[in-house]
Design a protein around this nucleic acid. Sequence first.
DNA 1: TATTGTTATACTCTATAACTATA
DNA 2: TATAGTTATAGAGTATAACAATA
Lengths: 150, 150
Amino acid sequence: MHAERWETTLGRVLELTVLLGRDMADSLAREGLTESRAHLLWRLQQRGPCTQRTLATDMHITPRAITALVDGLVATGFVTREPHPSDRRATLVTFTERGRATAHGLLDSYHRLARQLFADLPDDTFDGFDAGLLHVITRLRDVVAAKTTE
Amino acid sequence: MHAERWETTLGRVLELTVLLGRDMADSLAREGLTESRAHLLWRLQQRGPCTQRTLATDMHITPRAITALVDGLVATGFVTREPHPSDRRATLVTFTERGRATAHGLLDSYHRLARQLFADLPDDTFDGFDAGLLHVITRLRDVVAAKTTE
DNA sequence: TATTGTTATACTCTATAACTATA
DNA sequence: TATAGTTATAGAGTATAACAATA
């Protein structure tokens, strides 16, 4: 195995991230969403109504950033701020009908994309791809962990 | 092949992009760079000194955004604006010594990362991963092209 | 008239710090 | 005293539009 092949392949990984990022940003823009706001809707769908603090911890961004994202999503009609039943400091971020429908649409798009990318891939190639992905993700976690320790 | 596997694997692809993005942003911050500014340095290294217009076309962002990025890179000492020898409207964005050294450093980091991710991957797994990547990138280009045509 | 890069203006994402209301 | 969310302030990236200098 030669280093040139590794570098070519890493180049492909980077190209994939760029293409995927552009495609997702484009699709989201058609729904009136940005990547950050869609991320919030995604988390909200998985957790159900929750406090902004929960979302901040979940999404690894500050409470201030959540306030800004929720402001935008409220203004565009995807979510509402509801009072927390037992803690009057907190708010429960909650889907509007439109928000719920949009989140379902995002899930559909995700399924459709998975099919488009993988449906016509031979089984053994798919397996190799998946195995390689797992390996690379593990390595990457090690790299990140090593840096954090430094 | 079941749809669930496609979705799990797409999830891994997304996780990879997130991890890679975080790792790169962290490394760049240590050099006093952002991803956008590093992208500009990367293109500059591949093309040599060039006009802002060229960079704008190259990086798929507006001339205004290039002005902002170059302003930042000039202020932090990575590049200078030099007069264009034959067109007095244009400027040639050019590396400083520090800029050139940093760009070389980025290239080194790239090589090192490729080695860290792939060096201990069995040859056949690597081949499967690479083949899958190629396929997925091709599919993704089709998807993007289909949307643009719409 | 077309092009290069700028200024003017605006929106989004994010961060830190100070503050209010509540626990 | 600690926590939830806000306001204040700041910096980065990007976009469109109007403009100056030059081609």
